[in-house]
């Protein structure tokens, strides 16, 4: 789908977020970027989204056309909803910005809301929703425009463990069904092993891709308790240990 070659980003204050990153994202993958705080993961996602540009290197989209509005869905660490708008209006926002009225897109909006398990909460304002539900609205908003690429920046980091597990389950189910290409940033080894179809491990700043772990986890009924999941987390842990400076 896209290829990054020799990409580097250095801020005006001299901070080098990452340097010399080569990576390829194929259609239908669930790529997890795993790395310590400050290694440039967010900056890298912003670059993939076109919100930032690399100082060195190139980013090439396979079909030659850079993404148009709506081609990329972005989920931030916080839900970042419009507090004055209802859940439904928040989900409708990307379509509205593309000039499509609510009445002509009602079915898509409602279907996406239902897909994220939010049916019945269409009119709720963010202030009355729990953290997990707000994140569901945020994911629905990212998916409503049927993006080619879904970028997620530690979306579940602020949630409690129970809510996090349910959202991971639902996200995984959604991905298996739709095979939207996802690049997902996290600090969590368990989250990584549970969600990824391929793992990229980054070094501390300036971030580089230090290791790549393909992970064709089988799809048993319960991934979390599957022995393959345990051995994958062990493998990721060992890789991190090898990559991180003492």
């Amino acid at each position: 789908m896209l290829r990054l070659t020799g990409a580097g980003r250095r801020f005006v204050n001299g901070t080098i977020a990452f340097a010399d990153i080569d990576m390829r994202i194929d259609a239908g993958e669930f790529v997890v970027l795993l790395g310590p705080s400050g290694c440039g993961k967010s900056t890298l996602l912003r670059l993939l989204a076109g919100l930032d540009v690399p100082d060195t290197g190139t980013i090439v989209w396979n079909d030659g056309t850079p993404p148009a509005p709506g081609d990329i869905g972005f989920v931030f660490q916080d839900a970042t909803l419009l507090p004055w708008a209802s859940a439904e209006q928040n989900v409708h926002l990307p379509l509205r910005l593309a000039g499509k009225s609510f009445s002509e897109t009602r079915n898509e909006v409602r279907a996406t809301i239902a897909q994220l398990g939010l049916a019945g909460f269409e009119d709720a304002k963010p202030a009355s929703l729990s953290g997990g539900m707000k994140m569901r609205v945020s994911i629905a908003r990212a998916l409503v425009s049927r993006p080619r690429l879904l970028l997620m920046d530690e979306p579940f980091a602020a949630l409690d463990e129970f809510t996090r597990h349910r959202l991971q389950d639902d996200l995984h189910a959604l991905w298996r069904e739709a095979r939207t290409t996802v690049v997902f940033v996290t600090h969590s080894i368990y989250e990584t092993a549970y969600l990824a179809s391929r793992i990229l491990v980054m070094t501390p700043r300036p971030g580089r891709i230090a290791a790549e772990i393909p992970c064709p986890l089988p799809d048993p009924a319960d991934r979390r308790t599957d022995p393959a999941y345990a051995s994958l987390t062990a493998q990721v842990t060992e890789t991190l240990r090898a990559v991180m400076p003492a």
Partner: peptide
């Protein structure tokens, strides 16, 4: 909020 501004940019 800068993230909302990014979201608006992303959606053209």
């Amino acid at each position: 909020p800068p993230e909302l501004a990014d979201l608006f940019r992303l959606n053209g």
